[in-house]
Amino acid sequence: MNKTQSVSIFVLRVLIGWHFLYEGLVKISDPSWSSVGYLKSSQGPFSGIFIALADQSTTMVAIDFLNQWGLIVIGLALITGIFTRIFAFSGMVLLLLYYLCVPPWVGLEYSIPMEGKYLIVNKTLIEAAALFVLGVFSAGEQFGLDTLIKRKSAAATNLATG
């Protein structure tokens, strides 16, 4: 990867990390926040599952907790570039769940207004795809802590084989 490519991947990783981290922190600092409303507004083929989850208050406590801390941890990992592959793919799965909960598909109408106009593809799906790219390209090795981990494990391998 040449320098421009490395820097581009680094910038993309940090931007998405920033977005995740802030979303997580905002949710944690608002005591009234819960994903119940989002899940309850679910439509499409998986709406049954999402709505059923929203109806169970004990499950919701766990879902909200995982959501808040999931976003924060993934955000921090992406910014610092540590274990990037795992966290990029986890973030992608999380975003795909958001996407499938309220997919912008033809024929589905939502009472909560969206901030743009979408047909199948929306920003959540694009961000999920971007995380896939980051995972595939080992983005943490471009100006990230994964460089050091790789170096360490390489050194260990060298020692073992040497």
């Binding site: 680094f10 920033w18 981290l21 921090l76 910014i79 610092t80 100006f143 990230g144 050091l148 170096r151």
Partner: peptide, 16 residues
């Protein structure tokens, strides 16, 4: 150099 490169995103965290 690798350590410096690896820490490149720390200023981003600070800014955040």
């Amino acid at each position: 150099r690798d350590i410096i490169k690896g820490m490149a995103s720390l200023p981003v965290l600070g800014l955040f």
